[in-house]
Structures are given as C-alpha cells and as structure tokens.
Design a protein around this nucleic acid. Structure first.
Lengths: 147, 147
DNA sequence: ACTCATTCTCTGCTTGTGCAACTATCTTGC
DNA sequence: GCAAGATAGTTGCACAAGCAGAGAATGAGT
C-alpha cells in the first residue's frame, strides 16, 4: 500500500499551522522593524539580548546560545553590528579568551526605538488576536513544546 | 527616560516562547528526517506538497507559494530535488510557460518513508505533550495568528 | 492581427549561516 | 610548574535563499 491516506493526517496540519503562524509573525516583525527603524531583526535581537542581561553585556558564547546560533555565526553577526556602531567588543580582564559585547550609546538608542516598534507589533499581531484565557493556554502549551 | 523598564515586557516573552518552540520542533524534525531517511526537510516538504495536491503535481509558482519561497528559491530547490531523482519537471501542454513538478516512483517511496518518520515525530514531540483540550485551543489560536 | 501588460520561470549577485579547522587562553592532575 | 585537555573565539569554505532583472509565453483591448 501507499501512504497516500496519511498525507492529510491532521497532525501534519497542526504543525503546518504552527509553522505558518510563526512565519507570518516573523515576517511582519521583520518588515515593520526594517521600515520603521532601518534595522534587521537579527540586529534588534542582539541589542535586546544584551540590554536584558545583567550588566547589559554578554560574552560571545552566551549571545550565540541565546540567539540559537553557532559561535561562528555569532562572530559574523556581531561583526556586522559592530560595523553599524551599535555595540563594541571589550576584552575581559580576568579571562583573555573572553570578549564582552556591550551597547554603545547609539545601540541603546536604537534598542529603545526598536522596542517601541516591536511592542506595538506584538500587541497588534499577537496579543489583540487572542482572548486572554486563550493566550494563557497558548503560552502554557508553547512552554511544554519548548522544553 | 530609557525604555529599560520595557525590556522584560511579558509580550516579548510570549513571542520568545513561540519562537523557541518552533525552532525546537523544526530542529528535531530536521535531525530525525536526516538521520532516518537521509533527506532534508526541504526535500520532504516538496514531496509532501506535491503528494497532497490534486493530481499529485504542482506548478513552480504554486509550489513556491505553498513553501513560502520566492520563485527563484523554488527553482533552485526543485533543481536539487530533480538531481536527487525524486521529482521531474514536465511541461504543460496548454500553457507553455508552466512547468509541472511530478513525483517519480523514487519520490513516491521517499515520501512514504518520510511520512512514517515524520508522523512518529509529530506524535512524540507535539501531540503527546499536550492535553487534548489544550491542543484544541492551541490550534485555534495558531489559526487566528496565521490569518 | 497587433500591441502591451501580465504571468511563469530561470539566472546573477548578495547576504546570512553552519561546519570544521585553527589559535589563544585557561584549568586540571600529576 | 608543566603537560594534556577543555574552552572562547575567529576564519575558510560551501550552501541555501532572497531580490532584482531578463526572457519567453500568454491574454485582453482595440
């Protein structure tokens, strides 16, 4: 027999919904951030992760881990953000292998600007579309899937 | 004032959960498919979309649309799947601009093989982790976000 | 029938990322 | 102290995908 009968299995549809919802939001956020603040969402993620961390600084490896990138990918991405003048690398006095990545004043400003835009987008595209109880269950479910 | 107080806004966390859940599943499925059937999930997606469509064939543009790729991206991807011997392009008799993409016997087999693996993965990583009612709300929420 | 806009697909170029190899530095165990 | 291994970060290479533009085929209005 062929598996043709399985090709419309509802489980595939469930994952398809997750995939599409994620892609839709991601693209909406990318586009909004790009048009309103001339910044890619990768850049914004870097600034946000640093801005949220204690001491507003991160090592390359912590950053790579939080972003879900390999260390090589993080190096390249941070290179570009440095070129844009939004962060700087500073060497760690106690471990000379380590590079701290720190926001510049421009980076701080760009982060705040991006945050305002992003929170707006989140409200409109995510929060406003779900009932409060629905949102609750939704978050709990995502948390179970993420683990 | 700085927006520092906004940097931990719960709305960011919500989206973060969605992002991480999606990435986790995507990587798990990629890895499983790659190791058990020596096929990337892009390839599998191509086979699946074709296998699910009426007449088990799709035009390049329909395929690109369903995969969320640009036409250029679809051309390259289909090139690789053709090289692997899993699909063929056949020209449309009524509109000579159009190329139908059709499964080969190998492609059919690979699709069935991939489906078995993927359904297993979906059951384990997605369905089994959620209560039935939770799954219901989850799907409804995703559908609202996707529109 | 002819022109012109539209549709479908493919190609050149650029960007971003993973993988694997490499260097520099730190830590552990003797 | 010092050799062996672990860890942090960077670099070379390959590949996947987007964008923009080109070329071919179609269809609509006159």
């Amino acid at each position: 027999m062929t598996a043709a009968g399985n090709r419309d299995d509802p489980r595939i549809t469930t994952y398809g919904l997750l995939h599409e919802a994620h892609r839709r939001l991601e693209r909406a956020f990318d586009a909004s951030l790009a048009s309103h603040s001339a910044m890619s969402s990768s850049f914004f993620e870097v600034l946000l992760r640093i801005g949220r961390s204690p001491g507003t600084r991160l090592t390359m490896s912590e950053l790579a881990c939080q972003l879900g990138l390999t260390s090589g990918g993080a190096t390249r991405l941070v290179d570009r953000v440095v070129d844009a003048g939004l962060v700087v690398r500073t060497s760690c006095p106690t471990d000379r292998r380590v590079q701290w990545v720190v926001l510049t004043p421009d980076g701080e400003a760009k982060l705040d600007e991006g945050l305002a835009i992003h929170l707006d987008d989140l409200q409109r595209e995510l929060i406003d579309r779900l009932d409060p109880e629905e949102l609750d269950v939704f978050e709990r479910a995502l948390d179970k899937l993420r683990a």
